[in-house]
């Protein structure tokens, strides 16, 4: 490198240092962006993903049909339930449990739910001293309202139960006898 062909790099270095110091100096007097949480609370957006609830029909019945799709979709396996059948073949969950100490609030359960029963709410303040209190049972999860889609009613679209036995519907083949295919 030939000397004196370009300005000495030390001046550039000093200028860079001074620039950096000036930037931080300006920031000292800038207004802090801190929200002092317990005193001042920020309103989250409506689609914020926090505490999970089970919603009800517009008629007041439970939406959940205990199909296990949310449990299967859950990446950390924090949802468990036991299915039961009411009169007329109406399925429901006998018990339904979400372990919030495991839940990562990814929202995959709400995506998976065919009946829009499981939904996420913006309520993010669910800390507990005792970890066992984070295991929410069905009574804790079930709310009275119908959540985000107030018009939706799964059983009104689908009907309850299967009317005829398998293959008995008009445009349906009889079931294949798997044993009959064997040599």
């Amino acid at each position: 490198m030939a000397p004196f062909t370009k300005p000495m790099p030390i001046f550039n270095d000093l200028k860079a240092l001074a620039t950096g110091l000036f930037v931080t100096w300006k920031h000292i007097f800038r207004r802090p962006v801190t929200v002092e949480y317990p005193d001042a609370k920020r309103t989250p957006y409506p689609r914020y993903r926090a505490r999970i609830v089970l919603t009800r029909d517009p008629d007041g019945g439970e939406r959940c049909v205990a199909c296990y799709l949310c449990s299967a979709a859950c990446p950390v396996d924090c949802i468990s339930m036991e299915a039961a059948e009411g009169e007329g073949g109406r399925r429901y969950a006998r018990w339904f449990r979400i372990n919030f100490s495991r839940c990562i609030f990814c929202g995959l359960c709400a995506e998976a739910c065919p009946t829009l029963a499981i939904q996420m709410t913006p309520d993010y303040e669910i800390c507990e001293r005792d970890v066992m209190e984070l295991v929410y049972e069905k009574e804790d999860l079930l709310i009275d309202g119908c959540g985000k889609d107030p018009e939706y009613n799964f059983y009104r679209h689908a009907g309850i139960g299967v009317v005829n036995p398998r293959g008995g519907n008009p445009d349906e083949e009889p079931p294949v006898d798997v044993r009959g295919l064997m040599p």
Partner: peptide
């Protein structure tokens, strides 16, 4: 405190 102010915190 000063570091917080520099970083726009309190």
């Amino acid at each position: 405190r000063l570091l917080a102010w520099i970083q726009d915190r309190k």
